[in-house]
Amino acid sequence: MTVKKPSSGGTALSWMPIMVMTAVAGLDIVAGPGVGLLPLVSLGPAFAGLVGGWRRTALIGVVALVLCVGLGLYDGLFESRRGYTAMASVAGVTGAGIAAAVMRSRREAELANVQRIAEVAQRVLLRPVPLTAGPLQAAVSYTSAVAEARIGGDLYEVVASPHGVRVIVGDVQGKGLAAVETAAVVLGAFREAAHDEPALTGLGARVERSVARELEGEKFVTAILAEIGTDHEAVFLNYGHPAPMLVRRDGTADFPQPPSFALPLGLGVHGTDPPEPFRVGFAPGEQLLLYTDGVTEARDSDGRFYPLGERTHLLKDPDAHGALRALREDVVQHVAGPAHDDAAMLLLRYRGQGPA
């Protein structure tokens, strides 16, 4: 587990109460009692309530009260009501700061609980792909565009079935919990049908029917299904999804296109033809990258899309996970800012050297 060091901004905020009270004390001594700076000592517990826990806020409040009494005696303010008014101000702000700190701690605990639930949902919905499946080595990368989110609308799965290794990568229209729910429907249908359906077209039809039952209106899911056996070929069904990238042994990249384009999952009820399967040679020593449009549509500051086909050299790392990590970091560097869309990448390597 990596332990994060406190940021310089967080350190400055934690010292803010002490610095404020020190500054007020110094100005009060220099300016004298006529200026009326003593009530500003209450800024110490006020800042403490914003950034610290209730115990630290109470401690800062006690220090502020002691400082208020000391400055009041030094200025001779207790001969009138000014000293007592300043003490009441400090005590009141300290109480409010303690209440704010308690409420913030409760909200942070609730947020931590929600994040734990999200992590459990991630393990159920987007469970880790197997390191090896049949003749393939697999690695996956997922980046959510939503701050602090673990999961989103992109989906992936690898299933080693009796009919070959079957793979899906998809992108749900929309974001948020509704997209996560739709992704769960697609993955559930795929995982069940991948073992039962002998043909890839039958698998696609099962997933299409499940999605059509669940989705309403014009919602849809772009997806690509693949089947890799032992005959050095990959069979694809493309439901309006970006073409996969096939990296040959010499480092050149191909983006195999379907013979005819089909609508995404969920729109097949409009009576259009289903996608036609197409075969592509996939031999030992070659790599297959399936991804969502959050990768290829990532733009830099000048509006240029990410040139995926020019980044095949990043996949030369013997470790598939290391290669995919380098590619993901390059996408992040290209964007040079927060991602605008979820981005999923699934890398499949055909193990073995194959013919030169």
Rank of each mutant, 00 (worst) to 15 (best):
L289N: 07
Y84I: 08
H321K: 15
P244A: 05
P355I: 09
A344I: 06
P6T: 05
A31D: 13
P162K: 04
R206E: 12
A223I: 01
L77S: 11
V120A: 12
G354N: 04
G170V: 03
P307N: 06
A138S: 13
L308T: 14
V93R: 06
A343M: 14
F305N: 10
A133N: 07
I168N: 03
G97R: 01
A118V: 09
W15Y: 14
E192P: 01
L346E: 06
E197Y: 06
R311Y: 05
P244R: 04
D171E: 04
Q137E: 15
I60G: 04
M16C: 13
T252A: 12
A189T: 09
H334I: 05
L50M: 15
I18R: 03
T182G: 01
L27G: 14
R127F: 00
V93W: 10
E148Q: 10
V20N: 01
R209F: 01
Y350S: 09
R279V: 14
F282G: 05
D75W: 05
I117H: 07
G164K: 03
A339G: 10
E310F: 11
F78C: 07
G9I: 15
R325G: 07
M16T: 14
V93I: 15
L50C: 08
G240D: 00
S141K: 10
F78E: 09
P275A: 03
A58T: 12
T94V: 04
L263T: 09
D171L: 00
V269L: 11
P284Y: 04
D171I: 02
A46H: 06
R106K: 15
N238Q: 08
D154W: 08
E208F: 02
A64F: 08
A96S: 11
G217N: 05
Y291S: 00
R311H: 09
D342M: 04
D196V: 10
Y239S: 00
L126N: 03
L136D: 07
A336D: 15
A298M: 12
M19A: 14
V146N: 02
L136E: 07
S161M: 03
A88I: 11
G337P: 08
G188N: 05
A326F: 04
P6V: 09
Q137R: 15
P135C: 02
Q257F: 09
A147S: 10
A298D: 08
